[in-house]
């Protein structure tokens, strides 16, 4: 891998990764990875222009507002940032979006959603974490509910999902619960990813692939 054309490497920003490698490791074809690079460039050059996606750029792309804080967008950003260095590199972007591909097995989507909801990274979803997430979505939706009503929602959810009644939702319980309620995983599939080359036809101009 040491023989990279100097011209090519100068054009590529720090987070860039070979589309052939990414296509081998994911559901995407080389052309689709190149189309994703067009999307990645648009986001990663929107504010800091260094070819890496910073959190403000991610927020800007999601909400049209770089200052909008949102617990769940923070969680997504942190999970996409596989190296935990505060930015999303191109390879991280492609590998993470792969989970959201319509053809990705549902088990992978279930596992990713569990990590999203395991706010403290303890390996289970606790009652306090669930309440924190309910309060965040109510705040985001500008819905006012009494503390009793919030407690009731959390209690009811635990009665359904915490099958052994130990006060925690573990990965196996989450898997059973999510399998029984597939609507919960709707946000884990992005139909756009099926037509990514149609959405970003300009990838052809920058393509290094011959197919």
């Amino acid at each position: 891998m040491g023989c990279v054309s100097s011209k090519e490497s100068r054009r590529r920003p720090p987070g860039y990764e070979d589309p052939n490698t990414l296509a081998r490791e994911t559901t995407f074809s080389v052309n689709e990875v190149e189309a994703l690079y067009e999307l990645y460039k648009r986001i990663s050059y929107s504010i800091t222009k260094d070819g890496l996606i910073h959190k403000e750029e991610f927020q800007l792309a999601l909400f049209r507002n770089s200052n909008k804080r949102n617990l769940f967008a923070d969680r997504i950003f942190d999970l996409f940032d596989l190296k935990r260095n505060g930015v999303i590199e191109f390879g991280e972007f492609v590998r993470s979006l792969d989970v959201f591909h319509p053809d990705t097995p549902v088990e992978e989507k279930i596992a990713f959603a569990f990590r999203l909801y395991d706010l403290r990274g303890t390996g289970f979803i606790g009652r306090e974490e669930l309440k924190e997430m309910v309060l965040a979505i109510l705040n985001e939706s500008e819905l006012l509910l009494s503390d009793d009503a919030v407690e009731e929602i959390v209690d009811q959810t635990f009665r359904q999902a915490d099958m052994n009644g130990d006060g925690k939702i573990d990965p196996d319980e989450w898997k059973v619960f999510a399998s029984k309620n597939p609507a919960l995983l709707k946000n884990m599939t992005l139909p756009y990813l099926k037509d990514i080359t149609m959405a970003f036809p300009s990838f052809v101009l920058n393509s290094g692939a011959s197919d």
Binding site: F72, Y117, V154, L184
Partner: peptide, 25 residues
């Protein structure tokens, strides 16, 4: 009623999870 009382169903509707927005110009 059980569906409306499902915390995860509420949470999954967050705009923060709506990654489709990344694809909008």
């Amino acid at each position: 009623k059980p569906e409306s009382m499902n915390a995860f169903a509420l949470i999954s509707r967050s705009q923060g999870f709506n990654l489709g927005n990344l694809f909008e110009k």
